[in-house]
Each structure stands twice: as C-alpha cells, then as structure tokens.
Design a protein around this nucleic acid. Structure first.
Length: 561
RNA sequence: GCGCCCAUAGCUCAACCGGAUAGAGCAACGGCCUUCUAAGCCGUAGGUUGCAGGUUCGAGUCCUGCUGGGCGUGCCA
C-alpha cells in the first residue's frame, strides 16, 4: 500500500515537472508514513512541505497541485490536504483487508525481506570470559544480540553469531589458582587464599569435579580432569572447559546458540598476535616507554596512548583484541556488530584506533557497536545483588529458573539498549495484565482458542469464501487491526536497520492491544458463514504475525494459557 | 577534571533516520463475564518532554551551554 502511494506520488511529480510547475532538478526521497490519527486517513506524506522551499511555492498550493496531478487508483479512496500541507490518503475500504491473503500466503516469511541481499554480517555478543556463571548483564547481551541476529536474518543478511572468550591471561590464571586453592581445601578466609581469587561457590564445584576426574566437553573440546591438585596447567584447562560448558547450558536454556566460538589463545597459537605487533611497529605508530611497548592511539582519536606489551613481556588484552578484529576483517565481514556492555565502551575507540594503525584499508569507524547499559535487579522494590553460587552477582540462570525463559528474554530485550534497565523480578513473575509478555502471549492463545472452537464445531475455515467477503471486515477495530498487521514488514525493516530489537517488542504490544480490542468488540463465531470466514481469516493472519514477531524476540507463542 | 550514555504522566517505558492534538501499561476512579479464555475490554483523570538558548515552515528528536544520574578514565578485561 505504501509503495503504491509512493509510485502515485512519483507520477504526480513527473507530471508537474513536465508542466513546468516544478524545477526539473529536484529528486526528493518520498516519505509516506502511516498516520497516528485516523482523522488523517491511513497514510500521509509531507512531500509538499519538503518541496515548498526548492520549488518556491507555498506548501498548500504545492499540495493541491500534487493532488491534482495524482493518477487515479483503486487503492486510494480519497485524499485530503491538511495542516500546513500534508497530503492524507484514505485507503479504499477493502484495500486494508488485502493484507490478509498477503499474510496467509507468506506464512512464516511474512515480514521477511531481501534487503541484505545475502551480505555477510557477523554479530559478536555475550563473549563472557570463562571465569564464572553468566550474569544478568550477559543475559541482556544475549537477548539483544540474538534478537538482532534474528532481525538481520529476517532482512536477508547472512548472519554469523560469534562468541569470543579470553582463555589466556591474568584472569584465567586467577581462576586456576582459585580452583586449585579449593581443591586443596582452602576457603576465601584462609591466609593462603589467592589475592583477588574467585570466591563464589561454583569454584568449589569445579574443584570437586576436577578431583573426581570428570570429563567435560565444550566448544568441540573434551577435557578429562587429571585430579592432581598440584598441576596448575591441568586445572586451568579443566576449569575453562567446565565453565564454558556451564555457560553454554545457560545459553541453551535461554534459547541462544552460536556459530563460532573464538578462543583468544588461538590468536597466540596461530601467530596472529605477533604478526599484529610487527605490523604496528613497522607502521611506525609505536614507541617504547618505561620498558613497555605503546601504541600511539592518540593519532587515531583516542585520548591517550595505550600499552600493548607490558614491561613484563605479556600483552595487554588490547593487542589480541586488535588481532581478533583484523581476523574478522580478513574473514570477509564488511559488517561486524559487537554487542557489549557499556562498561567496556572504552575499548571501542581503542580497537578502532588499533585497526587504523594497521593501515590495511579497514574503514574508519569499523566495526559497529551496540552497547547496552547496566541491569539492576530488584525484588520487592529492593536491589538484589548477590547470588550464592556466583558470590557477587545475580546469574542469568537464577532469572531463568525463577521467572522463566520467555519473560526473562522479553524483559531484557524490550528496552532500548542505551538506557539502564531495572529488572523487576516480581513484575516478570506476575501472571497479570501488568506483565507485557503475558499480554502478548495471551493474545496469541486467544486467537488459537477461537480457531480451535471453529474446528471443534466442524466449521472449517473456507478460504475462498473468506477472501470473497473480506470487505465485510469494516468495523473500526478490524480496520485498526488490519492496518497494524500491514505495518509489520516495515517495523522489522526499521528495527533491523536501526539495530533496535525493542521496536519489535513495542510493535507486538500494540498489535496485541489491537487484537484484544477487536476480540471484545467483534464476535468471530457468528452464524453468517461469509462474515465468520472473513473474521477467521483475520484471526489466522493475526496469529501468524504474533508468531513471527515473537520469534524475532526468541519468545514462544503458546497456543493455550 | 576528561570521555561515553541517559533524563518524557505519580511509576515503568514508547514515539517509525525533524512532522499534525507527545502515546501505552501500572497505580487512582467509574463501568463490562447466562456470549469465542476477564492473564481481557470500555471510560475518566493525569504533561511547560530536566533547565536555558539556537537551527527550521515545524524540535521530545538536531546544535551549544548548564543541572542531575550511570559507566569509563589500569602495564585489568
């Protein structure tokens, strides 16, 4: 419908140019929007307002000229000029209903597009280090990142989900030392407990499993514990695998899977870290100072230079990060999106600076970032800070176990990434209308219930008759619902482009509200078979769009509640 | 101090790359189940979009400066 109007306006523009009413050289991008207010018709354009200045005409005069030049169309019932010069389009009454066969024919693919043209996109998200269970912040990253991937897939991109983790370096040594201490029967209060050791109870589990000689597998690796509490290397290897497996189980319970697990250690093994250092030195962007090797990141917009190689000879995390991103680029990803917590936002400038310093033709501002702000968890209005298992933070597993997967995913994805999020456990658990997840899922279950009833009464859906009678879907509530359905593809498109999955959550709430309103106003199971079938068709289409939308969020669409 | 993010109804949040009278839900008040799931619907009330300027025909949206909050500011990640 929107495209129809745009092409009508293009014709009108051409006509006006031909008549000399408009300069030849203007080529505006025509913007047609669904109206917020019914009184403004179904669609509106601000074209006349935009062209008023270059055309040297008054907006309303221009609008009139445009309307006069508009070709006739069966899709448009009438047009009006309103306000300062908006042109409002009133869709023909049965035009809105045409969305129903469109949805039914497209099925699961309704809302999908080929915009991405199969272009490769990599989304890196979660990327938690294997030093403990995933926390709520990782959960937010997982929910946003995965939903973003679903959106990109739906808009025709070839998406790779990637998880990068640090399995080398100081934190991992700390982990190994902590497990070893536990394996030797020490606790955090003992004097020989490692400084800054991990204190959570899960360390005890790892230690016990190690002593028991268990075998764990994670990321295509199988690691069998040696059981020797003095072999720190064996402990390190086992602990990493153990915690990676645990994180994977949490992610699986959350409905999130990855295509690639990338190990920081592999960058060292493959010589990519060394190669990166050499290249940076050759490029002349480094210098030695205080026994350390620095990269002059200030040449590329950073506010201070950064250490790449410490005076003890080890690299900081920064260098493998650069090597890793160079590897992404070399793998052919022109678009890379890193989803991370905003507490790591300082790496953005740094990584980009490092990549520029390599001088390999990587564009400035590559890669892209989606940063999410912190998550605060509350229960009974009080902040929840501790989990027994993790010691110092609320785990993703705690939330999934307590409020369920659907509500957890929904709550973590339904807010803009760049605003802080308060996760209210009481609200997420409540089975009431103040819980948006249930509100949307209930809409789906309700449609299913009606469809079940039709089936149970032997009143099978007659599509031919339904299509013939679509014009009878003429109540305000039905029209509003159909218009909402028609907007789904553009909402998906916009959410993907702006990388804001919360727009889908918002849309689904609106859609559910339109449906509930309709449900209360219009009875589907009426005696009149034509009307009944038309309404069943609307129900089927609504169910389809609810499903497609919920799927983009990774939330289930239950048939009964 | 410097950098990034945020500020919209009493509360939690929307607002489609600048558009028409800023919208939902919760909380408050009043209605609706002998009818397809009341986890629902209808109605009432609630606003100087933190403050002050600027750009524009038009600003919650863009720019500048303030105020308040979060995060960062390691030879940690």
């Amino acid at each position: 419908m929107k495209d129809t109007i745009i092409s009508l306006l293009e014709d009108a523009l051409a006509t006006l140019k031909q008549q000399g009413d408009l300069p030849q050289d203007i080529a505006p991008t025509i913007k047609v929007d669904a109206t917020k207010d019914k009184a403004h018709g179904d669609y509106a354009t601000n074209l006349a307002l935009m062209l008023a200045k270059p055309a040297g005409k008054k907006p309303r005069e221009l609008a009139e000229a445009l309307v006069d030049a508009l070709p006739a169309s069966s899709a448009v019932d009438k047009t009006e000029i309103a306000g300062p010069g908006f042109i409002n389009f009133f869709a023909a009454t049965d035009a809105a209903a045409q969305i129903i066969p469109t949805v039914l024919d497209a099925g699961d693919t309704f809302g999908r597009s080929l915009t991405g043209q199969g272009q490769k996109v990599q989304v890196e998200f979660v990327s938690a280090n294997p030093t403990g269970p995933l926390h709520v912040g990782h959960g937010r990253g997982a929910a946003i990142g995965d939903s973003l991937c679903r959106l990109l897939e739906a808009t025709g991109y070839d998406v790779t989900r990637e998880f990068y983790y640090n399995d080398a370096g100081a934190q991992i040594n700390n982990l190994a030392a902590s497990v070893q201490a536990r394996a030797k029967g020490l606790g955090p209060d003992d004097e020989s407990w490692p400084e800054d050791g991990y204190r959570g109870d899960y360390i005890v589990d790892v230690a016990n499993s190690y002593l028991a000689g268990d075998t764990v597998h994670a990321d295509d690796r199988h690691v069998t514990a040696k059981g020797d509490p003095d072999d720190l290397d064996a402990i390190r290897e086992f602990a990493v695998a153990y915690l990676r497996r645990e994180q994977d189980l949490d992610l699986k319970a959350f409905g999130v899977e990855f295509d690639v697990y990338f190990l920081e250690s592999s960058l060292y093994e493959d010589g990519k870290v060394e190669a990166t250092v050499e290249r940076l030195i050759e490029g002349g962007h480094t210098y030695e100072h205080d026994g350390a090797l620095w990269l002059r990141t200030t040449d590329f917009g950073d506010d201070k230079d950064r250490v790449m190689r410490k005076s003890d000879g080890d690299y900081t995390y920064f260098l493998p990060d650069v090597a890793y991103h160079l590897d992404k680029w070399q793998r052919g990803f022109k678009t890379v999106i890193n989803e991370q917590g905003a507490d790591h936002h300082s790496t953005v400038t740094r990584v980009r600076a490092g990549l520029q310093a390599l001088e390999t033709g990587i564009p400035q501002g590559w890669p892209d970032y989606v940063l999410h702000q912190m998550v605060l968890v509350t229960r009974s209005g009080v902040e929840v800070k501790l989990s027994k298992r993790a010691g110092s933070y609320v785990t993703l597993r705690d939330l999934i176990d307590e409020v369920g997967r659907d509500a957890t995913r929904y709550f973590l994805v339904a807010r803009r990434a760049d605003s802080q999020l308060t996760f209210d456990i009481d609200l997420a658990r409540s089975q009431s209308n103040d819980n948006p997840v249930y509100y949307i899922q209930y809409a789906h279950a309700r449609v299913c219930s009606v469809l079940r009833k039709a089936e149970a009464e032997g009143l099978d859906f007659d599509r031919v008759q339904a299509m013939d009678q679509l014009a009878r879907l003429d109540t305000d509530q039905e029209k509003a619902l159909m218009n909402r359905l028609a907007r789904f593809p553009e909402v998906v498109e916009h959410a993907a482009i702006s990388r804001e999955p919360q727009q889908i959550a918002q849309y689904l709430q609106d859609l559910a509200a339109d449906f509930h309103t309709c449900y209360n106003a219009v009875k589907v199971m009426v005696d009149d078979p034509g009307l009944r079938n038309a309404r069943l068709a609307l129900g089927l289409a609504t169910r389809q769009v609810l499903r497609n939308g919920l799927d983009l969020l990774g939330v289930s669409a239950p048939e009964e509640m």
